[in-house]
Amino acid sequence: MAKERNIYNRIFKENVVKLSYEKKNLKEFANELGIAPCLLTKWRKDYQKFGEASFQGSGNLRVHPENRFSFELEKNYKKSELRFEILKKAYPYLYQGRIEVYNFIKNNEKKYSISEMCRVLNIKSGTYNRWKNNGISEKQRQIAILKKNISLIFLRSKKYYGRGKITQKLNDQGYKISQKQVSFYMNQLGLRKIAKRKFKITTDSKHTHYISPNVLNRKFTVNSSSKVWVSDITYIQTKKGFLYLTIIMDLYDRKIIGWSLGTELTTLKTTLAAWEMAKSNRTILKGMIFHSDRGVQYANKAFTSELNSYQCIRSMSRKGNSLDNAVSESFFNSLKRELIYRKSKLITQKLMKAEIYEFIENWYNKKRIHSALNYLTIEQFNEITNL
């Protein structure tokens, strides 16, 4: 039969060690207490090293009181590092709904503690354990898939799309869902598109050039290309001053067919440069309406002579009425909301030029869906109308 092992508590050990310093013979003292001399020697060494923190019990770290502060700092630092590591790895799943977060926890149970992951990801451990043991209903599974698809559409649009465009994309995939439902799930997932900012008027209309009447008169829907082109200019702030972006859009398919970006507001660098690109991309029809604001870059002789040479009909917005050129304004609002305002700090002109090119040529003209085109991309719209 195995000999029963004696268990001594912390107070007993401390008292024995303190009393042992008053004894001349440790062996005799250990025998009086019924303790093995080697055990008493071990207790004394521990006490010399850790002081009152010597006998904490199994599973508890021993730290000398003089080192307690630095130990706690290091402990908290390591805990913060661990929590940051968990959050960093879990971040892609946070926008995909609760079930995806549960799956992340389950797949990482061997690497991190469940309680720590639940704490970092704001999940109740009891709720997670019930999910793990009981699974989810078919309805919950379908909702989880729907949320995942909403998140994917939102993130693939670089967080540009709101509930309207996301609803259309989901309906294209076969879902029967309303904007109200999509808005509800987006709120649950914490998905927010960049809010609009108030547009600043930059037009210089204080000149003596001829002002054309508003021929377009807000008729923004046309039935074929090169019937109406609209144009506008805006400024974009960078690390070193402003860049000025001029665009020309065909109202038929809302494509940006000409644009220029530079540091000067001269006619040569703005409207004429954008016009040259537009001419190379689309055929100009006799009697085409060219609509703009009253800015000097559109009203001066150099640009109007160019329009007249192609027998275009000039049209200009009424004074101080940006809605007369609402489609161009809408493009700039999208550009600034979806690209410019998302920057936490100003970037260089070189980098901004690259990002503007990417936005116009690869995103807006090719991949972005447009509500004015029945939620189709420009390429899809042209494919359907050319059948």
Rank of each mutant, 00 (worst) to 15 (best):
Y235D: 05
G174T: 11
Y112T: 01
N25F: 15
M117L: 12
V222D: 01
N122S: 12
E338F: 02
L261V: 15
G162H: 02
H370D: 04
K367H: 11
Y244F: 02
Q179R: 12
R192D: 02
S58R: 12
D253V: 06
I233F: 11
L121F: 02
F290Y: 04
A90S: 12
N25D: 10
I247W: 09
K88L: 14
F29I: 08
W275H: 14
E72W: 09
I248N: 05
L26N: 09
G241A: 00
F71P: 00
Y210I: 05
K111C: 03
N187P: 10
H207A: 03
N321G: 05
R83W: 08
I289E: 03
E264T: 15
R197G: 14
A299F: 00
E22R: 04
S322D: 00
S292D: 06
E338D: 01
I236R: 13
N31Y: 06
Q96D: 13
Q349N: 06
N67F: 08
R10N: 03
E276T: 06
E74H: 13
H209I: 03
I86W: 02
Q181N: 12
L87E: 15
S125T: 12
S178Y: 08
A53S: 07
Q179M: 12
N300Y: 05
N31L: 07
K336S: 01
F290M: 07
K24H: 10
N76R: 12
L268Q: 05
E306Q: 11
L373D: 11
D324Q: 04
K350D: 14
I150G: 13
G174E: 12
M277R: 09
K88M: 07
P65R: 11
S371P: 05
S54M: 07
N122A: 12
N365H: 04
S322L: 04
D46Q: 05
K147M: 02
L351R: 07
A53P: 06
F71S: 01
N281T: 09
V215S: 08
L285K: 09
W363T: 05
N67L: 09
L73K: 14
S183V: 12
E138M: 11
S315P: 07
S292W: 06
R192Y: 04
N149Q: 13
R130N: 08
I247T: 06
T246D: 00
W229A: 00
G174V: 08
K49L: 11
V101C: 04
T263V: 10
K89Y: 10
E379V: 05
S54T: 07
Y364N: 02
N300K: 10
A30I: 01
K88C: 10
